[in-house]
Design a protein around this nucleic acid. Structure first.
Lengths: 221, 221
DNA sequence: CCTTTTTTTATGGAATTGTTAAGATTTTGT
DNA sequence: ACAAAATCTTAACAATTCCATAAAAAAAGG
């Protein structure tokens, strides 16, 4: 489910769209004023923004331009009235990802939003990984065991990330060294053991998840 | 200090808010009933009115509409439950100046009230971001820590703005340099450290908010 | 029960960040 | 246009954190 912002002054339209989107468990926010909408778009991390062209206090084109000038990562869909073809063009110049002409069917809009979301998720890397009750937040570099924040050092974090990414695989010390320490690493192969120990100490004291594969290395169940 | 009216039927919430606000020497009045609250709002010159949406005998939306219709000069902040996004919309149509979704932190509410009071006296368009009790006024380029104006240089301001906009994310020095200094910047990467140091010095001497992510860069909690 | 491998602990040193100050650059005031 | 002031950048040193190594203790395997 995604965070979606609708900036549209015709309340009947925005309510209809919002109703449909909420059916798909999306979190929908509506703004009727251009400037207010722009401010929210700027300050909250929306996944998709539906943007009407004609708006009070600030029009859709300017909003789109400004959002792109900053580095909003939102997928922006412009809503245009049938006849302003010219504006449609500008909409694209301006950094919109897609456009829909009014009147449109809810189905079509929903499909375009889904397409946008897919594209967005493919484009961006996943920003969190979950393993059992351990959550790795890649953007904030935080790790939680349940809802307990567990401070890890960089190497510990990278090691855990690699383990989770390859869970189930037995990973040799050499593999870990070349991937996490770099291909030209020529130090002691036992470095890995020490970091595994520290990871276990912080996250898995009972060695429930991080198993040692004798003669090889380690693996995450 | 200001006269503040809280219209909220959940006594635990209103008492908590009132307690916090009185710490700042504000004069706080509480009403639990919609109609009663409306009457007081009409008859006394409050600077700020905190208005719950769902209230007995008269809801927040109607109160707000009627007060605006009379042209009460109060700065009205709507308190909305997380999920009634639709009501939030109506709240704006209706002339509220700001809104806060429950649950909210006392700090954030206090900051928004201060922002409202400032705006009320200076009468300028607010284009502001609020983080904890730090308010960033983007149009005047002013930053407040609580009530206190904190003079920042341009780079410090931009840095803070970027941190707030990406709060929670660990931001690398390279990211900050390319976004804030420009894509072609080729100087020392430690410039960032110095500016972080100065920002902390002015806004966060105890390093409560601006955390360093060793091996990466910095992040705002 | 002896050997091999892994776990655990301790420590010096390397790398990263904090802090300060001085020089360079830009902005402001006159 | 010039001088003064403010801000930014760089460099150097201090403080801190983290990592790699070594080496002892424990466990596994035969």
């Amino acid at each position: 489910m995604a965070k979606i912002l609708i900036i549209e002054d015709e309340i009947s339209i925005s309510k209809m769209i919002a109703y449909d989107l909420r059916q798909f468990a999306h979190e929908v926010t509506i703004e009727t004023d251009g400037l207010m909408g722009y401010k929210r778009a700027q300050n909250e991390p929306f996944d998709v923004i539906l943007l009407d062209l004609m708006l009070p206090s600030m029009n859709g084109i300017d909003i789109c331009k400004k959002l792109r000038a900053k580095d909003s990562s939102a997928y922006i869909i412009m809503l245009t009235a049938m006849d302003d073809e010219l504006h449609k063009l500008e909409g694209f110049d301006v950094g919109a990802d897609d456009y829909v002409t009014k009147p449109f069917s809810p189905r079509e809009l929903a499909a375009r939003i889904r397409a946008g979301l897919r594209r967005k998720t493919v484009k961006e890397e996943p920003n969190s990984m979950v393993y059992e009750d351990i959550t790795l937040d890649l953007s904030s570099h935080e790790v939680y065991r349940g809802d307990q924040l567990v401070p890890l050092t960089l190497k510990e974090f990278e090691l855990l990330e690699f383990l989770v990414k390859h869970k189930g695989q037995a990973l040799s010390r050499e593999q870990l060294l070349t991937k996490l320490w770099g291909y030209s690493y020529d130090g002691d192969t036992r470095v890995v053991d020490v970091h595994i120990f520290k990871l276990r100490d912080k996250l898995d004291p009972k060695q429930e998840f991080i198993k040692t594969v004798r003669g090889i290395g380690y693996k995450l169940l």
